[in-house]
Design a protein around this nucleic acid. Structure first.
Length: 494
RNA sequence: GCAGCCGUAGCUCAGUUGUUGGUCUAGAGCGCCUGACUGUGGAUCAGGAGGUCAUGGGUUCGACCCCCAUCGGCUGUACCA
C-alpha cells in the first residue's frame, strides 16, 4: 500500500462544482425553455471566448500594471494581461465594436459560464452560468419593455404563473433626479457617478436587507450592524435624507399612478422628468399587450449594479417564499436582472450605442426551482435495464438491447457478473424505471419478464409477508418475446 | 477584508460540560458490503468493512478534551464592475 501522505487529495476549488446528471438535465431543460422564448422574439444565439484582454473587460489598472480584484486574471506568453470573463455583457460590447458592420439593431442571446473570484456563499459560486438577452442599437423604450415581456414569458415557460414572480422596474434617471432634488451632486461633468452619489445608491440598494431605517443610517453618518461592524455612511444631512425617504416610500396601485406620484417629487428636474417619460412609455407598451401590474411593477428601490446602467433597470424576484432548514420563511434573491446601458460601447468607438438587456442567473433560478420542487429529473437517462444473470445468454441480451434502442428506448445492458439482486438494486439506485429479466425459464417459453421498479417501490409499503410478496410479484409481467417493445412503451407511458 | 461560531467514520452527529484531563486500543443513526433468500431492489434480522478524533507544536505521569499557531468550513458584514 502507498503511504497515504504520498497520495494526492482529490480536492476542488471552492465555489466550483461538479454537475451530476440530475442537475445537468434540469439545467438543460431550463435553458432550452428559455432559449425557445428568446427565439420567439427573434433573438439569435452567439458565443464568445471565455478569455478576454483585461483592458477590454474594463478591469485593467494601468497604474498598478495589474487587474482589478474579483476577476480571475493572469498573463499569457506575450506578457499580456488576460482574464476569464465575469459577465457576458462586456464581451458583447467588444463584439459590437469589433464588427461595426453588424446590422442594427443587433439582437442576440448567449448562454455561457462566467467566473468571479469572490467569496462563495449560499447559491453564490465562483463559476456559474448566465443566459443573457440584449438588443444593441435600439434607443426605443419598446426594447426595454420587450425585455420585461421576455422575462415574464420565460418564467411562464418554466411553469411559473402570474403572482409567483414580479419584474421590478426603475430608472437610473429618476434616481439621479431624486439626488439632484436633494441637492446632492451625483454626477460629475462627464456624467459619471460621484463618490457621494455612489454611496447613496449603494445604501438604497440594500433596502430589502437592512430595511428603511438601515438605509437612512447609511445615508447619514453610518450604520452599526448586529455583529458590531460599522459601515461608514454617505454623510447626508437630514433634509437630504428626507427627500430620498419620500422617494423610497412611494407606493402606487398601478404603474401609471406610480409615475404620477413620481412626477410630483422629481418632475421638476430635467433628468427626473426624462426618466418618468421613459417609464410611461414602457407602461404603455406593456399595458397594450396585457402585462399587468402584478407581473411588471415600478419600484423605486431598484438600483442594480452601480456603474454602467444609464436608464431603465430591471430586477426579477420570485414572490414564493421557501422554508430553510430551520423552518424560517425566506425569499429567493434576484433571478433575472438587467437594464439599459447606452454608454458601454462608447469606450471602443467614441460614440454612444444604445443597448438594453437582461441576464438570468441560471444556477440561482435552478436552485430556487429545486427548493420549490418544481423540477424533478432522473439520475440517469436509461429507461430500461436489461439484467444479465446467465452469461451464456449474453448474445440474447444484446439483441434485446438493440431492439429496444432501435425503437428509441434508452436502454442499458448490465455487463458485469453479478447476482440479480445486485442488478436490480443498481437500477433502483439510478432511478431506471424498468428492468428486463430473462433466464432459462423465459428463453424456453419464448417470453421476457418486465419489472416496473417505480410501481414496485409504491407497492413495497404493503409488504407483509416476504415469501408471499416474492411469489406474487405484482409489479412485473411476463409477456411474449414479440410483445417486448410494445409492452415497454406502454409501461413507460404511464 | 473584518467579526463570531465550528472541524470526531462516506453523511449527520454524541463523547469535551463551572470541584477534575485517566472509564476512549473512540461510539450511534443513516449509507455501504455480505448472508438468511441456489432467479427479484425498496421491508426485517444477523454479521462485516470503514477513524493518524483537521494539521503542527506546547503543557502534563497521561490530551479527542487545556494552551498557541496554521489550514479548512459555516454565518453575519464589507466589496461585487
Amino acid at each position: 500500500m502507498e503511504n497515504s501522505t504520498s497520495l494526492c487529495s482529490p480536492r476542488m476549488l471552492k465555489g466550483f462544482r461538479d454537475t451530476f446528471t440530475q442537475e445537468y438535465l434540469a439545467r438543460r431543460w431550463l435553458v432550452n425553455n428559455v432559449q425557445k422564448v428568446y427565439e420567439r422574439y427573434g433573438f439569435a444565439p452567439i458565443e464568445t471566448p471565455a478569455l478576454e484582454y483585461v483592458d477590454v473587460l474594463g478591469k485593467y489598472l494601468p497604474e498598478c500594471d495589474t487587474a482589478e480584484e474579483g476577476i480571475f486574471s493572469f498573463r499569457d506568453l506575450d506578457r499580456e494581461w488576460i482574464a476569464l470573463r465575469y459577465d457576458l455583457t462586456a464581451a458583447l460590447a467588444r463584439l459590437v465594436a469589433l464588427y461595426p458592420e453588424l446590422p442594427k439593431p443587433f439582437r442576440r442571446y448567449q448562454l455561457g459560464l462566467v467566473w468571479r473570484d469572490e467569496k462563495p456563499g449560499l447559491a453564490r459560486f465562483r463559476e456559474f452560468y448566465q443566459l443573457d438577452i440584449d438588443t444593441v442599437g435600439c434607443a426605443s423604450m419598446q426594447a426595454d419593455a420587450e425585455v420585461c415581456a421576455v422575462i415574464c414569458d420565460a418564467l411562464t415557460s418554466l411553469g411559473f404563473v402570474v403572482g409567483e414572480y414580479q419584474v421590478k422596474v426603475s430608472n437610473r434617471k429618476i434616481l439621479n433626479g431624486v439626488l439632484e432634488k436633494a441637492g446632492i451632486d451625483s454626477l460629475d461633468s462627464k456624467g459619471n457617478l460621484t463618490e457621494i452619489g455612489l454611496t447613496a445608491l449603494r445604501a438604497i440598494d440594500k433596502l430589502d436587507r437592512i430595511g428603511l431605517r438601515g438605509v437612512m443610517e447609511l445615508l447619514g453618518p453610518g450604520r452599526k450592524d448586529e455583529s458590531g461592524d460599522f459601515t461608514k455612511g454617505a454623510g447626508l444631512n437630514s433634509d437630504q435624507i428626507i427627500w430620498i425617504e419620500k422617494f423610497l416610500q412611494i407606493q402606487a396601485k398601478s404603474r401609471e399612478q406610480f409615475c404620477k406620484e413620481l412626477d410630483a417629487l422629481v418632475g421638476s428636474t430635467v433628468i427626473g422628468k426624462q426618466g418618468i417619460d421613459e417609464l410611461l412609455q414602457i407602461d404603455q407598451f406593456l399595458s397594450a399587450v396585457g402585462y399587468t401590474n402584478s407581473q411588471v411593477v415600478f419600484d423605486p428601490t431598484i438600483v442594480r449594479g452601480l456603474s454602467y446602467y444609464t436608464g431603465p433597470v430591471f430586477e426579477t424576484v420570485l414572490t414564493i417564499p421557501y422554508h430553510d432548514e430551520h423552518g424560517n420563511e425566506r425569499h429567493f434573491g434576484s433571478i433575472f436582472s438587467g437594464g439599459r446601458y447606452d454608454g458601454l460601447v462608447e469606450r471602443f468607438l467614441g460614440y454612444k450605442v444604445p443597448a438594453t438587456g437582461a441576464s438570468i442567473g441560471v444556477d440561482r433560478l435552478l436552485e430556487a426551482m429545486k427548493c420549490l420542487g418544481r423540477i424533478n429529473m432522473p439520475k440517469a437517462t436509461a429507461q430500461v435495464l436489461i439484467t444479465s444473470m446467465d452469461s451464456q445468454l449474453m448474445p440474447e441480451y444484446q439483441k434485446l438491447a438493440f431492439e429496444l434502442r432501435r425503437a428509441g428506448i434508452c436502454t442499458e445492458l448490465f455487463m458485469e457478473k453479478a447476482g440479480l439482486k445486485k442488478q436490480l438494486k443498481y437500477a433502483d439506485q439510478w432511478d431506471i424505471p424498468l428492468a428486463i429479466i430473462v433466464g432459462s425459464n423465459e428463453v424456453s417459453q419464448h417470453k421476457v419478464t418486465i419489472k416496473d421498479l417505480r410501481k414496485g417501490r409504491e407497492l413495497a409499503s404493503e409488504i407483509k409477508d416476504r415469501d408471499e410478496w416474492r411469489r406474487s410479484q405484482p409489479a412485473q409481467v411476463i409477456v411474449d418475446r414479440e410483445a417486448l417493445i410494445s409492452t415497454v412503451q406502454q409501461m413507460l407511458a404511464n
